[in-house]
Structure formats: C-alpha cells, structure tokens
Design a protein around this nucleic acid. Structure first.
Lengths: 124, 124
DNA sequence: CGAACGTTTAACCATATGGTTAACTATTAT
DNA sequence: ATAATAGTTAACCATATGGTTAAACGTTCG
C-alpha cells in the first residue's frame, strides 16, 4: 500500500501548494460555506473557485453536501494528518542538526581541525 | 510579510508534492549525497534528477556545496517547519470535530431532533 | 409558467511541470 | 594532451494547471 499513500500525499501537498486553496480551507475552518460565499473574497471568477474546490474535494480535504441548488462545503482536515506525519519525520533531523551544531561549536573553539576532502561516493 | 511566507509555503508544498522529490529528501536524511548518487535509484535521466534537485534547492529544502566537479546536497529541513506549523493549525479542527461528533452521539441516542434547512449565507 | 439564482461544464488560452536527448562546461585521471 | 566523469543548460515535447467567458443544468421565486 505504499503506492496508495504516496498518491494521497501527492494530492494533499499539491492541493495545499496554492494560496487560494489554503485560503479556502481557512474560511472553512470557520464553518460550512457555499461556493459563492467562498468565492466572494477573491478577485477571480466563480468557475475558477469552483475548480479549486473540486481540487480540494479530490484531495479529500473537504466534503460537499448538496442542499437544493446550493453546495455546502465542510473542512475535512484528517488527510492533512498524513502530510503532517510525513513532515514530522524530518523534525528529528533538523533538531538533530542543531544539536550537532551546538556540539561542533563547543568542541571547536577557534580553528577547525579536520577538512580532508571526500574521495568517492557518499560523504558524511 | 504575509506575502513572503505565503510564497514560501507555495514553494515548500509544491516541492513536496512530487514522490521523486520526497524520495530524494529521504535519501538526504541519511547523509550528504552527490547528484549522481541521488539519481541512481530512479528510472529517469540525470538531467531530470538535476531539475528535481534544483526545485528542492529553490524551496530551501536542501543546500548544495560544490567540491570540484561534484555537488554535495544536504537536507535543510527547517523550511518544512513552517509547513508543519501551517498544517498543525488544522489539527485542532479535526480533533474538535471528533469531540463534537462524540457529543452529538451522546445527546442524540436514537432519532435526530433538529433538521431545519438553512436559508441564506453561511451554515453551521 | 418564466425569471433569477447557484453551480458546473465546455472550450479556450497562457504558462508551468516533468520528462527526454544532445551539447556544453568544468574537473579529474591517464 | 586526451579522455572520462559530474553536472548543468538548451531545445523540445506532452500533459497539467490556473485562469477566462459562454453555455447548460437544476432549483427556487414570483
């Protein structure tokens, strides 16, 4: 099932990569909105917003409920958790780096001692 | 400076939206790699990987150090923190939703009591 | 009924993305 | 000096993305 979740991450991250769509999610975090309401703050046409909404819907980041001619959109934040978990995995790394930097500064007060060049393949 | 960080989020999320690039970051979390080394696992040309690397570089997710003709790439996970923070903001929401669901189920044992239709503008 | 509303779909356009191969630059090895 | 290695850049291609306007669809209002 690696493939499956990779594809889901693709959808989630690329949905989040657009400022209009992030703004829409922000609106939805304050309640359920109609497409027209969502579109109001933006300087773009309704069909453009409609497309953004459907990108978010396909990524599973919102759910749509039809009520007559009106569509109500509701935030579905759960898929973000997978993305957050993916990113979290790297927190250890950047925190680890700071630790290493601290250790380096402590054990190398003035001049660096080792600066040999790598010869082949991976470094570090 | 809202614009600035919005643009940074665009870059970060769209860099993360590609499985090849996520895989490259994963490799870099095990140390510093050259472009050729990074390319080895993939069924694509070196220029293709080179482009992916430069996308990650522009997003600030890795740093490049030139050592003769070799380029060593190093993970720079810090920008992910901003993305993680953005997503984290929504965790409260989905956890809140689960709370609300629990409360709803508790106070509505069998049949729902309120199902009036909304009239205009925002619902919920 | 017919008009207005809410939304999507269609057709189109410009630009971005992800890949290719070929050519080029720069460095290292023989 | 020549050849091999590491990497980028250029030119190209197909498809995706983000926007537009116009038309269509279904629902509600008068």
């Amino acid at each position: 099932m690696v493939k499956r979740s990779e594809a889901a991450l693709d959808l989630t991250f690329s949905a989040l990569a657009d400022p209009t769509r992030r703004s829409i999610l922000k609106s939805l975090s304050h309640g359920e909105w109609r497409v027209t309401d969502l579109a109001e703050p933006f300087a773009m046409s309704l069909p453009a917003v409609s497309k953004h909404v459907s990108v978010l819907e396909k990524a599973g980041l919102l759910k749509r409920s039809r009520l007559g001619r009106e569509h109500y959109l509701k935030l579905e934040a759960a898929p973000m958790r997978q993305a957050a978990t993916w990113i979290e995995h790297y927190r250890k790394f950047w925190e680890g780096s700071l630790d290493e930097l601290a250790r380096y500064l402590e054990s190398n007060p003035v001049s660096p001692t080792s600066n040999q060049k790598p010869k082949k393949g991976k470094k570090a």
